[in-house]
Each structure stands twice: as C-alpha cells, then as structure tokens.
C-alpha cells in the first residue's frame, strides 16, 4: 500500500510540472491560434540551457541560473513569434504553414541539440537531496519541491491573468481577437509576449523535470503530447482546469506504470487523447477558427 502511495505521489509531482508545460501551450494556442509543435523541443532546449548554466559549464548557483534562464527563454519565444510566425499570419493556408514551420523548428532544435550535446542523455543532479515523510509515506524531497514550485508558478500566472491589466489583455485576445483590436490592444505584442511566456514556462518545466528524466535530444515529444492531452481535458485557457487535468492524468499514468510497466506510458496517453477528443470533439477551437478566417 505505501509503495502504491509513493507511486501515486510521484505521479502527482510530475503531473504538476506537466501542467506548466500545458499552460504554456494553451496560452499560445488560445491567443495566437497556433499549435506550436516545437513546444516539446523548447522544453528540451530549456533543460539543456539550464544544464550549461549549472553543472555543465558555468556552475552557477540555481537561483542565479534561473534568473539568467528566464530572459533567454523569453527572448527565444519572442523571436520565434515575430520572425517565424507573424510573417505567415493571414497568408493563404497559414494555419497549415504555421504548423509546418513549428514542426520544422522542432526538428531544427532536436538536431541542433543532438549535434551540440550528443545522443547520450545528460544527467542533472537533484537540487534538493533527501526524503520527506508525509503521513508515513516516504517521498523524495525533490519531488515535493517540484510540486510546490509548479503550484507557485501556476498561481503566479493566475494572478497575472486575472489581476493585471496586461493579463486582461491576454485574456481578451484569447476570447475575441477583433474585439481586442477594437479596444486598442496591440494584438501582435500580445502574441509575442504570450509566446515568450510560454517558452519560459516550458523551459522552466524542462529544468524542473531534468533531474527526474535526464536530458536527451528527443525527450521533448512525450511531454509535448502529454501537455496537449492536459490542455484538451482541462479546457483551453483555464489554468485551474490544467492543474486538475494534470493531477488526474498524472495519477492514471502512475497507476499504469505501476501495474503494466513504463513501456505502456505512450500508448495509454494516446488512448486517453483519443477518449478525451471523442468527448470534446467540437474542439475548444470552434470559436477561434471562425475568427481566424474572418
């Protein structure tokens, strides 16, 4: 029983990190109507950058590494949106071309990481060692830290979206692009900002999860898919929904791994994706599509 509870708790901690990736994906998807296929590759890239900053080369302390990491990730996101996506928007077939560009970018990042860092996975030490005992269940202190940090990040995001003027503008763009333009919101700036923020979120998740999963060039695809399932299940643009969905799916994953073994992880997520999409086939984009066309 305790072993089972340990597995469940591990699942929850990972899921919390997944929910950060998911919220990032959903922000861009919700505002700019772009499905960013490079989101997973950016997760990996974030992990590699933090590896360089900490144990890899520079040996910075964690807090400093995070402070350096955030602006780098934000800049990468803004650059992708302004240089690669904005020129395509409004052109013929732009939804297909935008998806292809992000998919192309994903492969560029994957292969650049492969060339730069090699195929062998890079280990990352846990930033906190030891174990904690909660209600008689022993769990690693690092997983507890991941859970807490992830919850803090999501809470901050929630405050930003609901309490700040800029956050309101982000929500307005997500709900009606033309309406947002009408009140004078610079929509392109919001797109660039949300893309930057989304890369910060996924890169931070890369940092948080790397001690658990190691860092490998193609390691981003799995979190990307999981994040999407979370977004679909939790509801587009709903940070609280993402947390709830992530916890639920994290527990399901933990139980599957416990009962059937790790090789069943991806098939199970695929089936979950299928089921979720069958329950919500209209897609959360129903609204967004007419706007993109109009």
């Amino acid at each position: 029983m305790t072993q089972f509870l340990e597995v469940i708790f591990g699942g929850i901690a990972q899921a919390a990190a997944y929910s950060i990736i998911a919220v990032g994906l959903s922000l861009v998807y919700g505002t700019a109507r772009t499905l960013n296929f490079a989101h997973g590759a950016l997760y990996t890239t974030g992990a590699y950058i933090s590896w360089i900053l900490t144990v890899g080369y520079l040996g910075l302390p964690l807090w400093l590494a995070v402070l350096v990491l955030i602006p780098i990730l934000f800049g990468i996101g803004v650059a992708i949106e302004t240089l690669m996506l904005r020129p395509l928007r409004g052109g013929k077939n732009w939804r297909v071309t935008a998806m292809m560009v992000t998919l192309g970018l994903a492969f560029v990042l994957d292969n650049a990481n492969l060339i730069l860092f090699g195929a062998v996975a890079k280990p990352m030490p846990a930033f906190i060692e030891g174990t904690v005992s909660i209600f008689g269940v022993t769990v690693s202190a690092y997983r507890v830290a991941v859970l807490i940090i992830a919850l803090i990040i999501v809470a901050l995001l929630e405050v930003f979206l609901n309490r700040t003027r800029f956050g309101w503008a982000v929500r307005a763009v997500a709900q009606d692009i033309q309406g947002a333009r009408q009140v004078g919101i610079d929509v392109n700036r919001i797109f660039a900002f949300t893309f930057g923020l989304s890369v910060v979120l996924t890169g931070m998740a890369g940092l948080l999860l790397s001690p658990i999963f190691l860092i490998s060039p193609q390691g981003g695809w799995e979190p990307f898919l999981k994040a999407f399932v979370i977004v679909v299940l939790g509801g587009l643009g709903s940070t609280r929904g993402a947390i709830a969905a992530a916890f639920f799916l994290g527990m399901v994953e933990a139980m599957v791994v416990y009962q059937l073994g790790a090789s069943w992880t991806m098939p199970v997520w695929l089936v979950t994706l299928l089921l979720v999409l069958m329950i919500r086939p209209q897609g959360l984009l129903g609204k967004g599509q007419s706007e993109a066309a109009g």
Partner: peptide, 12 residues
C-alpha cells in the same frame, strides 16, 4: 469602432 456582431469578451 462598435461592431455589428458585438465582439464582446464572452468569458469576462
């Protein structure tokens, strides 16, 4: 501009 199709923010 005030749009014919309102263009409100539905979830606010």
């Amino acid at each position: 501009y005030v749009a014919e199709d309102r263009r409100l923010f539905p979830d606010m």
